[in-house]
Simulated assay, not measured.
Amino acid sequence: MADKRRFDLFAQFLVERFAASRVFDIAGGQGRLNQALSQRGCTVTTFDLRHKRLPVRYAERLFTLDEPCECDLLVGMHPDGATRVIIEYAAKHRLPFAVVPCCSDNGMPYNPWRRHLAELARGLGFPLVEEHVLPMEGRATVVLGAFSGSAREPGAGAQ
């Protein structure tokens, strides 16, 4: 069973770690991460195909590399098959990203999938690629990538 605190825990981590105000939440389901980030002062657009969702800013479509760049940060909480496109879009626009992967889009087991995502980010030019474990049950490891100045040092907190 999924940890019900996951959206709040991820949102708090994102706000503390990144100096971002406009966020794209990719494959965001009902928009619970959007809601948690919005409550913390971010302007968030969730991309997903769900018809049933929370009353949040929502783009009812798949997210592609051709999407206009109107954000400071890309995120995904268990974004399934959209995980790679988050990293590729972030690299294309030199934006930071943070994903909590769950399953791969190619059947790869979880730990090799996380390592693959980190290597993908490095290969696309991210100078900073790290992992952070959220204090929750289930798939809780954040893979993040950033360019100079787009992420705060760990433990620096929000300013």
Rank of each mutant, 00 (worst) to 15 (best):
M1R: 12
A2W: 09
A2E: 13
D3V: 04
D3G: 06
D3N: 07
K4Y: 04
K4R: 10
R5Q: 09
R6H: 03
R6L: 02
R6Y: 02
F7I: 05
F7H: 12
A11W: 00
Q12P: 04
F13M: 06
F13P: 01
F13A: 02
F13S: 03
L14V: 02
E16T: 12
R17V: 05
R17C: 04
F18S: 07
F18D: 02
F18N: 03
A19Q: 10
A19K: 04
A19E: 14
A20R: 05
S21T: 14
F24M: 05
D25F: 04
D25S: 07
A27H: 04
A27M: 08
G28T: 12
G28M: 07
R32M: 13
L33N: 11
N34S: 15
N34F: 03
A36S: 08
Q39I: 06
R40M: 10
R40F: 11
R40H: 13
C42P: 00
C42D: 00
V44A: 08
T46D: 09
T46V: 05
D48N: 06
H51R: 13
K52P: 01
R53A: 08
L54H: 12
L54S: 09
P55K: 12
V56D: 11
V56H: 11
R57A: 15
R57W: 09
R57H: 14
Y58Q: 08
R61E: 14
L62K: 08
T64A: 11
D66T: 11
D66F: 07
P68H: 14
P68F: 14
C71V: 06
C71Y: 06
D72W: 03
M77H: 08
H78P: 10
H78L: 15
P79Y: 08
P79M: 12
D80M: 11
G81L: 13
A82W: 07
R84N: 10
V85W: 06
I86L: 03
Y89S: 09
A90T: 00
A91E: 03
F97Y: 03
F97R: 03
V99R: 09
V99M: 07
C102N: 11
S104K: 11
S104A: 13
D105C: 14
N106L: 11
N106Q: 14
G107P: 04
G107H: 10
P109I: 09
N111L: 15
N111G: 10
P112Q: 13
P112A: 13
W113S: 09
R114W: 10
R114E: 13
R115W: 11
H116F: 14
L117R: 08
A118N: 02
A118P: 01
A118F: 02
E119Y: 01
A121E: 00
G123V: 05
G123M: 03
G125W: 05
F126W: 00
F126Q: 02
F126N: 08
E131Y: 10
H132L: 08
P135E: 08
E137Q: 15
R139K: 15
R139T: 10
R139V: 07
A140F: 05
L144Q: 08
A146N: 06
A146P: 01
F147S: 01
S148R: 12
A151S: 06
A151L: 11
E153Y: 05
P154C: 12
G155W: 02
A156T: 03
G157L: 07
A158S: 08
Q159D: 06
